[in-house]
Amino acid sequence: MLKRNKGVVFLSIGCILILIACGWYVYNIVEDKNAGQYASEILNEFDEAQNEKTDKNAPIITVDGDAFCGKVIIEKLSVELPVYDEWNYTRLKSAPCRYTGSVNTNDIIIAAHNYKSHFGSLNKLIIGDKVEFIDAYGKSHLYEVCEITTLDGTAVSDMQSGGWAFTLFTCTKGGEQRVTVRCERDKTY
C-alpha cells in the first residue's frame, strides 16, 4: 500500500511541477506579448506628442505624465521603441529607459527588458550595424555598433566606463549577465 502511495505521490508532485513550469512559460509569453503591445501604443502616443509638441525646445516629451527623452530605432531587429527619461522597474516593463548619460553629452546608456519586442534580440547585432536615436527635438543621431560584450550584473562601473557615445543593454536569458552593445557616432552619416 505504502509503495503504491509512494508512486502516486511522485506522480502527483511531477504533474504539479510540470503545471508550474507550463504556467510560468505561458506567463512569460503573455508578458512578452503585452510588453510589445504596450510599447507600440506608447510609441504611437510618443509620435503624436512629438508632432504636436508646443515647446519645441523642451528636452523631453511627456506622454501620460511620463517623460521620454527620445526613441530608439534598430532597423535590423525591427525595433522602434520610445525611451523613458528615467528608469524604474515599472517603466522597464513597458519600454526601454535611459539608465545614465544623454545623447548631448555623448554617453547615453539605455536599458531594456529582454522581451522579444524590446531588446531580446540585441545579441543578434554585429559590429557595423546601425542604430538610430531620435531625441525629443526630433533630431536624428545615427550610431554604429562597435562592440558587443557581456557584463556581469554587478559591473556597474564597467557599464559606465569606456567613454562610449551610445550603449544598449539587456539581460541574458539567465538573467545574471547583461548583453551590452557599444556604439559610436556613425561618421558616414
Binding site: I13, G14, A21, E31, Y89, L92, V156, K173, G174, G175
Partner: peptide, 20 residues
C-alpha cells in the same frame, strides 16, 4: 551594486520541468 534586472526568468522553467 547591481545593474537593473532587465530579464525574464526562463532558466527556472527548465529546471522545474526537468524535476517534474
Amino acid at each position: 551594486e547591481k545593474l537593473p534586472q532587465t530579464g525574464q526568468y526562463w532558466w527556472p522553467i527548465i529546471l522545474i520541468a526537468i524535476a517534474g
